[in-house]
Simulated scan of single mutants.
Amino acid sequence: MGDAPPLPPTRWALGGSRTSGYGDRFAELIAEGADVVGEARLADALVPRGAAILDAGSGMGRIGAHLLAQGHRVTAAEPDPVLVEQSRRLWPELEVLPLEILALTSDALTSAAAPTAYDLVVCVGNVLTFVAEGTEVAVLRRLGSLLAPGGRILVGFHLQEGPTTAREYAPEEFLADVEEAGLVVQHRFGGYDLRPVDDLYCVAILARA
């Protein structure tokens, strides 16, 4: 068998220097004492203590590190080498796999001694709007394949006023992609504080259909 073909470049990677300040900005916010773990509080409420959680697109590690501190078993995955280095430096106890979502195969996870099934997959911070063009359904399907029985996916992204290098992901298009990926929306909100659905931000809790 030959090597697998290379994965298409993500929108994040194509953004180049325009995405380079993300990790530094969050580090500044943390140093200032800002609340940067709203996503993690909701994730923590969705699972019992000690759950197996995958932080897919973990960035500089703020969400995975918070969930680890709450007693969960967290595997983080982040393809950006700068963010991987920052995460490992800030939170060395958080294991980070330098892989993008489509590379999170059972073989890759097993090789890294990581679980292959999770009680919760966290995919927040606009990750879905930064994946490679045309791969949204494949990414959602891959995340669904990593769920343990009864497991769920927490996703969140801007509908308006998001990062300039991210795509616009209309709610109706997202919902169609969720269905095509074999998933269902259990709940949808306008923010991680469970505010009503609005036109600015989408938070959704997904499960296998």
Rank of each mutant, 00 (worst) to 15 (best):
V74H: 01
P81G: 09
D119N: 14
G59H: 01
C123L: 08
G50Y: 09
L29P: 04
R41C: 10
S106Y: 09
P115W: 03
E95A: 11
G64E: 06
R73A: 13
V127P: 10
P115G: 05
E95M: 11
L128M: 11
A112P: 09
P81D: 07
P48V: 12
V74Y: 00
V74E: 03
P92N: 10
N126H: 08
G38C: 03
E100R: 15
L102W: 09
V124C: 15
A43R: 12
L46H: 08
I30Q: 14
S87N: 05
S111E: 15
P79V: 07
S87T: 14
L109V: 02
D107I: 00
G33L: 02
L109C: 04
A77G: 07
L90G: 07
L46N: 01
L29A: 11
A108K: 09
D44G: 07
L83T: 02
R62E: 06
Q86N: 09
H72Q: 04
M60C: 04
L68E: 12
L68K: 02
R62C: 08
V37F: 04
R89M: 07
E93D: 15
L128W: 04
L46P: 02
G38Q: 00
T116K: 03
E85H: 12
L97D: 14
E85R: 15
S58I: 01
D55M: 05
G125R: 03
I53Y: 04
D107R: 13
S87A: 15
G59I: 04
L46G: 03
T116G: 12
M60L: 05
A40E: 07
A103Y: 11
H72Y: 00
L67T: 00
P115T: 01
R89T: 15
L102K: 07
T110I: 02
L42Q: 11
L99M: 14
S58D: 01
L90H: 13
D55V: 04
D80P: 08
A108W: 03
I30N: 07
E95L: 11
E100I: 09
G50A: 13
R62V: 04
A77V: 05
L83A: 00
T116H: 03
L104R: 07
V37Q: 12
A114Q: 01
G50D: 08
H66L: 01
H66K: 11
I101F: 12
S106L: 10
I101W: 12
L83N: 02
R49T: 13
L97F: 13
